[in-house]
Computed example of a mutant assay.
Amino acid sequence: MSDPTEIYEAIQNQLKSVRSRKSLEAVHTVCQDLHDSGAVDFRIATISKLGANRGVPSAQTIRNKTGAPYRTLIGAWQAIGDKKRKEIKGRITPTGKYDWVDDVGNPTHRYLILDLIAQVRHLKAENRGFASIQKLEIDYRPQSDATEESQLPNILNHELAALKEAISDDFLKRQGWVRGERGNIMDQSGKVIFRNGFLDVIEKLLSLRTK
C-alpha cells in the first residue's frame, strides 16, 4: 500500500488518542495542499513549518519515537514527490548540459526548473515540426468564427466585472491571499485556496470576451 490517503486512513484506525488523530489529519491536509500546488518537497521541517498554525506537531515531535505515525505518512507523500521529480528529470536527456540544476539547494525549485526545461524542449520540438510544413492552408470562411463564438457562454458585463474583481491584486490583498507560480491562489500560510490553473482559466476567459 503506497497511496498516502490509504496509509492515512490505516494509521488513523490504529491511533487511540483523539489529539494524535487530529494531528495526523493536520499533517495529511498540509501534505495534500502541497501536492496540489505542484510541490515536491515533503521534508519534516517543511511540513512542520507550513502547518505550525494548523495543528501540525513540531519538527522535533515528529522526529521523536512517538512521531512514527507522522513520519510514515510524510514518507508516503515524499515518495510521490520523488517520483514526480524523477519523471520530470527523465524527460531531459542526460548530456551534462543541465547538470547545474543539481546544485540548486531547494528541491521544489529544482523541480520547477526541470519542469520549465522540459517544457522548452517540447516547444522547440513543436517549432521544428511547424518549420517542416511546406504548404499551409487557412480557412477564412466566416462561419468558423461564428461557430467558435457560439460555443462561448453569454457573459454579461457585470459578470465580467465580478471575475476581474475576484482575481484583482486589491481583492487578493484584502483576503490575505497571494498568487502562486502555477496559477493557483494560496493564503499567507501556504494553504491552497484555489488549485493550479484557477487564475489562468479566468484570465483566458476574460481575454476571449474582451477581444
Score class of each variant (00 low, 15 high):
Asn157Thr: 12
Pro94Gln: 12
Asn64Gln: 04
Gly105Thr: 10
Asn106Ser: 14
Lys22Ala: 14
Thr72Phe: 10
Lys22Phe: 11
Thr95Cys: 03
Asp169Pro: 01
Leu73Lys: 09
Pro94Asn: 15
Leu156Trp: 01
Lys164Leu: 00
Leu116Val: 11
Lys173Cys: 06
Gln14Leu: 11
Val18Ser: 12
Phe198Ile: 05
Lys84Trp: 11
Lys22Asn: 14
Asn64Trp: 00
Ile133Leu: 14
Lys173Ala: 15
Leu156Gly: 07
Asp170Pro: 04
Trp177Pro: 03
Ser37Glu: 09
Lys135Pro: 00
Lys83Asp: 15
Ile47Asn: 03
Val178Gln: 14
Lys89His: 05
Arg195His: 10
Ser144Tyr: 09
Gln119Ala: 15
Leu114Ile: 04
Val101Lys: 02
Glu126Arg: 11
Ser2Ala: 13
Leu205Ile: 08
Lys124Asn: 15
Trp77Arg: 13
Glu159Ala: 10
Gly55Thr: 02
Thr210Lys: 05
Lys211Arg: 12
Leu205Gly: 07
Leu160Gln: 09
Lys84Glu: 09
Leu163Arg: 03
Tyr98His: 12
Glu203Leu: 06
Ser20Gly: 12
Gln143Val: 15
Ala161Val: 03
Lys191Thr: 09
Lys49Cys: 07
Ala125Glu: 12
Lys135Phe: 02
Pro142Ile: 10
Gln175Gly: 10
Glu203Ser: 14
Gly38Lys: 01
Asn184Thr: 02
Pro57Val: 01
Asn157Tyr: 07
Leu152Pro: 02
Gly129Ser: 01
Ile80Asn: 07
Phe171Val: 09
Leu160His: 09
Gly183Ser: 01
Glu126Gln: 11
Gln151Glu: 07
Val192Phe: 08
Pro69Ala: 04
Ser168Cys: 11
Gly105His: 09
Val178Ser: 13
Lys204His: 00
Leu123Gln: 14
Lys65Glu: 11
Leu116Gly: 10
Lys86Ser: 08
Ile7Pro: 04
Ile74Arg: 08
Leu160Ser: 03
Ser58Met: 05
Ile92Arg: 06
Pro57Met: 07
Asp103Lys: 03
Ile167Ser: 04
Leu123Lys: 10
Gly105Gln: 11
Asp169Arg: 09
Pro107Met: 08
Glu149Phe: 05
Lys49Tyr: 01
Ala59Pro: 05
Glu148Gly: 08
Asp170Thr: 06
Arg128Cys: 01
Gln78Cys: 07
Thr95His: 05
Ser17Thr: 11
Asp99Asn: 13
Ser132Phe: 04
Leu156Pro: 00
Lys164Pro: 00
Arg121Ser: 15
Ala162Arg: 02
Ala161His: 01
Tyr8Asn: 04
Ala166Ser: 14
Arg63Cys: 04
